[in-house]
Design a protein around this nucleic acid. Sequence first.
DNA 1: CTGAAAGCGCTAACAT
DNA 2: ATGTTAGCGCTTTCAG
Lengths: 337, 337
Amino acid sequence: MVSIDEVARKAGLSTATVSRALSGRGYVSAASREKVLLAAQELGYVVSSRASSLASGRTRNIGVIVPYLDRWFFSMVLSGVSSALMKHGYDITLYNITADSDARKDVFETALRRQRVDAVIAVAIELDEDETEHLLALDLPVIAIGGPNPALDTLSMDDVALARLATEHLLGLGHTEIAHIGANPEFDIDFHIPTNRRLGFEQALADAGIAPNPAYLEPADFTVDGGYRAAKQLLGRPGPRPTAVFAASDEMAIGAVLAARDLGYRVPEDLSVVGIDGHELGEFFRLTTVDQFPLAQGERAADAVLAKLESSDEPTAHGELPFELIVRGTTARLPKA
Amino acid sequence: MVSIDEVARKAGLSTATVSRALSGRGYVSAASREKVLLAAQELGYVVSSRASSLASGRTRNIGVIVPYLDRWFFSMVLSGVSSALMKHGYDITLYNITADSDARKDVFETALRRQRVDAVIAVAIELDEDETEHLLALDLPVIAIGGPNPALDTLSMDDVALARLATEHLLGLGHTEIAHIGANPEFDIDFHIPTNRRLGFEQALADAGIAPNPAYLEPADFTVDGGYRAAKQLLGRPGPRPTAVFAASDEMAIGAVLAARDLGYRVPEDLSVVGIDGHELGEFFRLTTVDQFPLAQGERAADAVLAKLESSDEPTAHGELPFELIVRGTTARLPKA
DNA sequence: CTGAAAGCGCTAACAT
DNA sequence: ATGTTAGCGCTTTCAG
């Protein structure tokens, strides 16, 4: 491994100047910089992050904590974080919080404290007080996606508003018999997303003067299969039948579309379906959805963390994440009866 | 940040002994070890990986190179790698090779050379000679998934055999009019997977004495949508029609199932469909598939890399990855005509 | 089995 | 603008 001394020797300068030229900190004449760059190039020198970080306290590495690696949303966020950070020469080390609570504890109590990272991005993890403490005690910039966690700088999604938008879309098309798939308190681990989406749904109905119908609330587990089963229940039960379904995720919405078809209902003629996410599969099914741009969420978190790193004073107000209604083919006006 | 000196002082021992006790390297009396552990515990001491790695040359961090973060297969592999490594106290830093060739170059020429990792796992990336050189020049243990790359220790999937198995399943059910979706040379970037799967398909047919029918070969892009379009072509064209379809991925197979249904064919009565992957969505569609256990692939790569780390002499023969036919509901015997 | 001490390769005052 | 030098916080000989 070629070291900084060799570069210094070759460039005919001191190691200090080489360090300055390479890092861009401190004054270096243009001529010296040239020499250093050339020497480094020719020797194939790359700064050792081990040594550099020990001396400087900076690692150029960001820790990213995610609860799942194998779920679409998190993959997208991670992808966004990664591309944004790589552009700035930062590496990312991954901390996958699992169900195993010992492993989880280990991340906060040991792994993150090894001084391997300059900052932390926590993606959609509900942190308990202890964990929040640990994070704060690191004394590093932290950005959370998906709050709210009043103790942390957070980029949060207004899930109530998201759900209102989806519901209002249906209302605007003339639907009044609207069912909701998703409200399952059991899945409320992640910031009450299911509950908030149900709340938004109910608010929109209330604003339109529609009384909530408990029979139109069907719990499901956020999978295609779950959405399928829920929709079958909704559509198969005797009695009043919804003309539209708002599912709390695109995967459930897709399940609902498939269930409707299997029962002989046409989508959107007989049933309108709207989801939430902007899932790639939604395009194939021409699913109307409220896109929450997970890739952009990741990029934005990365940018926020970099901003905090440059100027630690930055306020980095708790930001709201954008979302947008994408009207495709699974929703339509309520046909006149 | 509490340092090793404080622990040493509190334990009444030298820093050398503390280091030995904590790392498990070198002799330490049980009594001393106790004292050290207690002191470290009470002070909440965690070894600084910066300092430790500079002094020892070990980082307890593995670099993982992946071409995609947002594709199911890679997410699963990554998930497997992550869980296996975390168990052993290793962190993982992620290098996402993108289409951007400058960024790609940067990973091999700079990022990986920063001495941040003890070993590298390369997931299904076709490396050119230059990149392979760079990897080898790191002088670190490297494990590749998805080879073959003769220069690297590789865990590889026998895609020809995988495809044969899928095809033989169909043949065994009595089908002779079998189409294949997937062979698209354009997508051959990743180790000729499409080509190898087509080869396995053709071999199985040949072994059964069936002449290949070019009209039964439909290229597609490995997405649901691609599989859907391909199947529509296959089933919609006038002339002989296949009674079974072997798709080179589960997502394409799902697309084929949906296309068949849309055209009025029943699956599996009128058309059998088999895929490859073991994709989670396959379960919902009751898709028959050849599972390639991506999670296990990741775990196995992690174990292999750890083994190399412990004993650098280990031969770590180029391993073959397992696969298995999962018969579900989209394939059936050819009905007597 | 333990301690003293010499680095690991770089950065950041400080001096010039 | 550049060089000198004292660390950064650990690990690892080497003695004992």
